[in-house]
Design a protein around this nucleic acid. Sequence first.
DNA 1: TAGGCCATGTAACCGGTTACATGATTAG
DNA 2: CTAATCATGTAACCGGTTACATGGCCTA
Lengths: 183, 183
Amino acid sequence: MNVRTLCLAILQHGDATGYEIKKMSVEGEYSYFVDASFGSIYPALARLEADGLVTVREETQPGKPARKIYSITDAGREALIGELTGQTDPDIFRSPFLLVAMNAELLPREHLVKAIDARLADLQREMELLGSIASSRSGGTEWIARYGMNCMTASHDFLTAYRDQLECLAVDADAQPGERAAG
Amino acid sequence: MNVRTLCLAILQHGDATGYEIKKMSVEGEYSYFVDASFGSIYPALARLEADGLVTVREETQPGKPARKIYSITDAGREALIGELTGQTDPDIFRSPFLLVAMNAELLPREHLVKAIDARLADLQREMELLGSIASSRSGGTEWIARYGMNCMTASHDFLTAYRDQLECLAVDADAQPGERAAG
DNA sequence: TAGGCCATGTAACCGGTTACATGATTAG
DNA sequence: CTAATCATGTAACCGGTTACATGGCCTA
C-alpha cells in the first residue's frame, strides 16, 4: 500500500486537491492507511495524471494560488479495485506507548503516569473524530468508523481499569533510578 | 523509534544474537514496536557496540557459524531509559483491511468475504501468540500482552457481529462489476 | 506584526527493505 | 532430495520525510 493507492481511494470518494488529500490522510478519515506528506502526494498525483488514472482541472481564485482539483477516471477506479482485491498486506499496529509500558520496571512512576495520561487523551481525541465520521457518513466509511470506535473504546477501558497494575511496577520516585532494573 | 532502540529494549530483557532479535521483532513479543530486517539489525548492533551501549561475546559452535551474543551495558540501559522517557511518537494503526472495508461498495462480495475471513484468522493467530506471552511472562511484558488480547478480542467480536452489514454493501456476484460505484 | 492557514512544488537526505553471498544441519 | 532453520553480513535501491522556496489572506 502506497501513496498512489491512497490518492485513488480518496478521489474515489470525491474530487480533491493535493492539499486536501494531505489533510484527510493525516488528520481525517483516511488516516488509517498510509501516512503521506506533500513531498510524496504531489509527485504521486502528477504521476497518476500522466498515467491517465486521474484528471485535473485548475481553479483560479483571486489572491490565492490556483487550486488543482483532481478527479478519478474509470481507469483509475479499475486500478484501485485491482489494488484492493490483489494486495494482502497485514494490518500493523506499532506502539511506542507499549514499549514504555513493557519497560515500566525501568522508568520513574511519574513518567509512566504521564505516558498513560497522554495515551488516554490521544484515544479520546481519536474517538471524537471517529464519532463525527460515523454520524456524518454512510456505507463502508461509517462501518470502519464504528469498528475503530469499538477498538478505541476497548483500549481506553482496559487502560483505565488496569493502569494501577502497570504503575505499581515503576521505579519509586525516591528510589535510585534503575535500582530495580538489575533484578 | 528506530531499530537501535528496539535492539536495546530486547537486550534489556536478556542477551541475544542478531538472528534472535530479528525473530522476536517479526514474530515474537517485540513485534509491536518497529519492524526490522537483517539489513537493519546487523548494522545497528555494530554501531551500538562501537558506541559502547552493548558488548559482544562470540560463541563458536562446531559446524555452524559463530554466534555473536550481545549484552546491554549500563550506558546502553541509560540510553534506553532516555529514549523511553523522551520520545512521544503517537501509536499508529495502519490497516489495508479497513481500506478494503471502506470501499466495500466497489468490490465483489466474494472478495470482501475472503478479506474478512483472512483478517479474522490473523486476529486469532495473534491472540494465540499473546496468550502464550501473557502466561509465560510477568511485569510489563505480561501487562502489554493482556492489553493486546483485549484489543484483539474487541476487534474479533466486532467483525464477527457486524460482518453481515459490511458484506451486504458489496457488489453482487452476478451484477456488472462496478455497477454501484457510480451511485 | 507574528503566526497560522491556504496552496503548490522540488531536492537532498535517510532509514529502512530486498537481494545477494555463504554454508552447515536437520526435518519431511 | 528439498526445504526450512540456523547464522552473519553487505550493497543497491526506494519510498518516503524534511527542509526549502514562494506568497497572499486572516486572525490574535
